[in-house]
Design a protein around this nucleic acid. Structure first.
Length: 476
RNA sequence: GGCGACGUAGCCAAGUGGUAAGGCAGGGCUCUGCAAAAGCCCCAUUCGGCAGUUCGAAUCUGCCCGUCGCCUCCA
């Protein structure tokens, strides 16, 4: 199998991936700020990194995956003040929902899931060092990073500092020395959650510093860098730019991360899907309406880094495609050897190694018409695992749908005098109709046969004739 | 104002110099008393427009048109 190539935002080029340590990959992905409900856009991003993890594991790397939780931020604090709730209850509730959605989607658990509020000492240590070395200053309302001290500022996002300063929408803050400077620590106002920070003042960490501190603590205590830093494309500026500014001035050997990967944003009906615009359906609601595996399938069709527009049509199409895979799997269900010459798996590996081209990988899988080779099922399931669509026991059966409660009465109404269903259970009633129809077919009484079949169809029962006899199912 | 992405069949979408993957929808065939289910097959002389480079362009260059995003909390 060939090399893994990934598009690196830092160098703006497709690069062969080489881990810093042999056979080991360290990944830090910016996780959720659970001060509001998660939406499908979050799912797309974390689903992509889940796929990357699966591929790296499949390629034989030992992967350490860290995904943080920003469990303290202005929005949850403001919300708590408005509603009278405890801010931590708000954050915990949303995060629990998010975790449940991730489980439903089959996303692998992170190896570490650091909460910002559990790393206050590490965050403060970093701020102290930034102050001591002249990269940060204490202002009236907080402690700020002095962007002008970091010449490479803007390198990741390809931005020019002078142009940023002349930009129209930089926040005006009377306490900062420069509009570009960003908060490392915010002093607590009365009633706000606070952590002591001597001698500067009680308060809470800024958003950017937590990722610098936690990635340092969990992945790179030596300050020589880790392999992959990821997140949504909207984090490139300013979040990731700020992380670099904070971390790299303190590191023995920058860069902070060798490869920076960014997932394309998701639009909903042509518009950005975001918390602030509010044009989103909560992820948990959407997963209640759609098979989570169909959601995964939907994302496989588009390149991860592209802006994608989500529509109900796209998921309807993916749902049908998923059914095809389930049928193929049922067909392969008896064969299970592991060894053999794999036909399709190598093609999927090749596609994924080409900057995670899931679109081609999926096409390979769908094109594959598996012969009954002994290893076909193993190969197929392995491919499905790589794409994050693990077969569940439900794949082996047709979806169990409930028979309508009034089925017998409705059937009787359809049939009138033709057949009595007195005292029959729904199953028995259907069997009686089928028996009657089989009798009619034997006598080549096609009119009666079709009448009985139509009656069943109108009651939502579909019929299938085969050499083994007639079977029925509930029409989807 | 600055930065960037995208525009490929009815819809979604891969392909980034060698002659248009795949999915959905649509059409046909086999099987069947007819259906259903299943399987097989067909479905873009062409890649927003115009010029240019090249033996060769959806792919490179220039200009134009259109859509979206980032520059503010954001995955």
């Amino acid at each position: 199998m060939g090399d893994l190539n990934l598009y690196n935002t830092r160098t703006r080029s497709l690069e062969r991936f080489v881990p810093l340590r042999d056979r080991e990959v360290r990944i830090y992905v910016c996780g959720l700020t659970p001060s509001a409900q998660a939406h499908l856009g979050h799912a797309r991003s974390f689903l992509f990194f889940d796929l990357l993890r699966r591929l790296l594991m499949h390629l034989g790397y030992r992967v350490t995956y860290v995904q943080n939780v920003t469990d303290i931020d202005d929005r949850s604090i403001n919300r708590a003040r408005e509603t009278g709730e405890d801010w931590y209850e708000i954050v915990s509730g949303y995060y629990a929902d998010f975790k449940a959605s991730m489980r439903a989607l089959g996303v692998l658990e992170p190896d570490h899931e650091p909460y910002a509020t559990k790393f206050i000492p590490e965050i403060q240590a970093m701020i102290r060092e930034l102050i001591e070395r002249g990269y940060a200053y204490v202002a009236t309302d907080g402690i700020y990073y002095r962007v002008s001290r970091f010449p490479r500022y803007g390198a990741l996002s390809n931005r020019n500092i002078d142009e940023l300063q002349s930009g129209a929408r930089i926040e005006v803050d009377e306490f900062k020395d420069d509009p570009l400077d960003f908060a490392l620590w915010k002093f607590a106002k009365p009633g706000e959650p606070r952590w002591p920070f001597e001698p500067y003042g009680d308060g809470r960490p800024g958003w950017h510093i937590e990722c610098s501190a936690m990635s340092h603590a969990l992945l790179d205590p030596l300050g020589t860098g880790f392999d992959i830093h990821g997140g949504g494309a909207d984090l490139i500026f300013p979040h990731h730019e700020n992380e670099i500014a904070q971390s790299e001035v303190l590191m023995a050997h920058p860069p902070m991360a060798n490869v920076w990967l960014h997932g394309g944003l998701l639009n909903f009906d042509g518009r950005k899907m975001s918390k602030s615009l509010g044009n989103f359906e909560p992820l948990s609601d959407l997963l209640a309406r759609h098979d989570p595996q169909a959601v995964r399938m939907t994302f496989l069709t588009t390149g991860y880094s592209k802006v994608m527009n989500f529509t109900e049509d796209s998921i309807a199409s993916a749902t049908i495609t998923l059914e095809r895979l389930k049928k193929t799997h049922r067909r392969l269900a008896v064969v299970s050897a592991r060894e053999g010459d794999y036909e399709m798996l190598p093609r999927i590996e090749t596609a994924l190694c080409n900057d995670m081209n899931t679109s081609v990988a999926l096409a390979e899988l769908l094109q594959w018409s598996p012969e009954a080779t002994p290893q076909a099922r193993y190969e197929f399931e392995r491919a499905l695992w790589l794409l994050g669509i693990a077969p569940t026991s439900a794949w082996l059966e047709e979806p169990p749908l409930a028979l309508p409660a009034d089925l017998v009465a409705r059937l009787q109404a359809e049939l009138g005098q033709e057949l009595s269903l007195d005292g029959a259970t729904p199953d028995e009633a259907i069997e009686r109709v089928i028996a009657q129809r089989s009798h009619a077919r034997t006598n080549k009484d096609w009119a009666a046969s079709d009448r009985l079949r139509d009656a069943l169809a109108r009651c939502g029962i579909a019929i299938k004739d085969s050499k083994e006899g007639t079977s029925w199912s509930i029409a989807g």
